[in-house]
Design a protein around this nucleic acid. Structure first.
Length: 270
DNA sequence: CTTACCGCCTGTCGGC
DNA sequence: TGCCGACAGGCGGTAA
């Protein structure tokens, strides 16, 4: 399941093959994604050159001459570079054939991903109201503290809110809260400035380490080479309910919060 | 505005 | 062995 580190890993993997390349052809085999792929997407993209591949939150931007294709990998999506004549599989929904002969192939079994068109990506409704990037200076303890004062919601839900900060998905929220020693159910408005500073550092460390390791492969994430990431073995609490806490040995507890698996140490996290 | 919950999807897994 | 329901989850949308 691609979170920010997986999307960034994908971006770094595909950018060298895409940037500067003209799009010769697009094959849309199944356009029924989270939102239907726009009927005119192929016409807008064919013949354009990919000027750059950017990431904002978990969205990838294929910046073309006259607009941007906004791509989201959803839960199960991947973008791979195909060099040979590999036949398309069941869930290979979209191919971009580039002038070099290489194909950028979008695979997404659960079809929670999307391909959309925007004349200006930053002005697109999905993008315009997003919070800051977690690895940018705009994301810091003071800002989290201020924005949380009136909030009654659990801190885990708060940091997973993309209007607060982007790119903190379920796995990394669990990990960061453990590192910071904060109970996931604690009300966001009842956490001190110092503890928010600690949490920000934990989020940064967790995401950075995961990017360095090529992301987390739990079930089906593969990078642009089709290889898995290696951060899963570094996870401290996610997926480890019942196992001993790496700090104190107490059995890690799992609860559901907003429908999502939440794992924490009842002793270390307050 | 805030908060909680729904639903889109398919592969996987546990129970019978 | 096979069937079937539960579950996983990003995240926009909607209802309260």
């Amino acid at each position: 399941m691609p979170e920010l580190p997986e999307v960034e890993t994908t971006r770094r993997g595909i950018a060298p093959f895409c940037e500067g390349q003209a799009i010769h052809r697009i094959k849309i085999r199944n356009g029924r994604l989270r939102w239907p792929v726009p009927g005119d997407l192929a016409a807008r993209m064919e013949g354009e050159t990919i000027r750059s591949v950017e990431r904002r939150a978990k969205y990838l931007f294929l910046n073309l001459d006259h607009g941007t294709a906004i791509v989201h990998l959803g839960m199960s999506g991947s973008l791979r570079i195909i060099t040979g004549d590999t036949p398309a599989g069941k869930h290979d929904h979209i191919d971009l054939v580039l002038e070099s002969g290489v194909t950028l192939r979008f695979n997404d079994p659960r079809r929670f991903g999307c391909w959309l068109w925007a004349d200006s990506a930053s002005a697109h409704p999905l993008i315009a109201s997003l919070g800051p990037e977690p690895l940018s200076p705009e994301f810091n303890g003071r800002m989290l503290f201020q924005r949380s004062r009136s909030r009654n919601t659990p801190v885990k839900s708060f940091i997973m809110d993309s209007h607060v900060v982007v790119g903190v998905g379920n796995i990394y929220a669990n990990e960061a809260l453990f590192k910071a020693g904060i109970h996931p159910g604690r009300k966001a408005g009842r956490i001190s400035l110092d503890r928010y500073r600690c949490l920000v550092e934990a989020i940064r460390e967790t995401l950075s380490a995961a990017i360095l390791m090529g992301g987390t492969t739990l079930r089906d994430f593969v990078n642009s080479d089709g290889k898995p990431g290696y951060f899963a073995q570094s996870l401290l609490v996610y997926g480890r309910a019942g196992e001993p806490c790496p700090e104190c040995g107490t059995a890690l507890k799992e609860i559901r919060m907003g429908g999502r698996s939440t794992v924490y140490c009842t002793r270390c996290q307050r």
